[in-house]
Write a protein that binds this DNA or RNA. Structure first.
Lengths: 123, 123
DNA sequence: ACCTTGTATCGACGGATGTCGATACAAGGG
DNA sequence: CCCTTGTATCGACATCCGTCGATACAAGGT
């Protein structure tokens, strides 16, 4: 399984550089599955946007049209994917995003070479 | 639907910066769904790794344990997500990744504040 | 102790998704 | 033309996934 921590600009070989192995692809797919839901994406950006980068579940149930158990489920998915961390503080449970995990994904997606030119041009 | 073209290093506001709207989240989730499969991830990196950045379907069916219709299906998903482009050239159909789309996703995922500290990061 | 509030787990259900074989469509060669 | 090769579509099936209500667990106040 790919390590999650060492996120940096050039930490991970972009997947466009050499073919992904089966195991890596499976692990990566699991992570992207966690991102492949509108509620979870909004949860992530909502948590990250909170002051201090943290939010308790009570802050997160309001903005959504889904039930509290569903929010709890989505938070669990994000946590198990390593995208967020959580901690109980008294009565409340707080969540925060794990920047290293997000940045690692970002660097994996990066396609070197060109950024904003139409495909198939010359080459 | 979010535009796919204008990908650049700092083109799009990272989703960690302000809460994603419902529509944007839905569109983004659709894109990540396309990435949330091991076969599609390997296809993507395999295509990108080919010389010239292009591969015909006949190059892509071999490395996988799934049937040709399944590969064709996955390529369709990637194409409809805007992650790859395709073109028929004689008997064969060629695919290439769309760097702008990949880099846009990468910049959206980026969480500012804790990367690899480029020179002069004031935090 | 009890009750209240916050959060997580459980079981169930409907819809989405990955896979296949069969088959249709596209292009070129005999 | 027909046949061969390359690719896409179709229909069917099993599994996965998001959602819910009910309920269990956690912590603090009275």
């Amino acid at each position: 399984m790919l390590p999650v921590f060492p996120a940096a600009d050039g930490c991970c070989t972009p997947m466009a550089r050499e073919p992904l192995g089966e195991a890596d692809a499976a692990a990566l797919a699991r992570t992207f599955k966690a991102l492949a839901d509108p509620v979870r994406l909004r949860l992530l950006s909502l948590i990250a946007s909170f002051e201090g980068g943290q939010a308790c579940v009570c802050d997160l149930t309001g903005p959504f049209d889904v039930s509290q158990p569903t929010i709890s489920h989505h938070l669990k998915v994000l946590r198990e994917a390593g995208l967020v961390g959580s901690e109980r503080r008294g009565t409340w449970v707080y969540y925060w995003v794990v920047p290293a995990a997000m940045n690692r994904l970002a660097s994996l997606l990066q396609v070197p070479g060109q950024v904003s030119a139409p495909p198939g041009s010359g080459t």
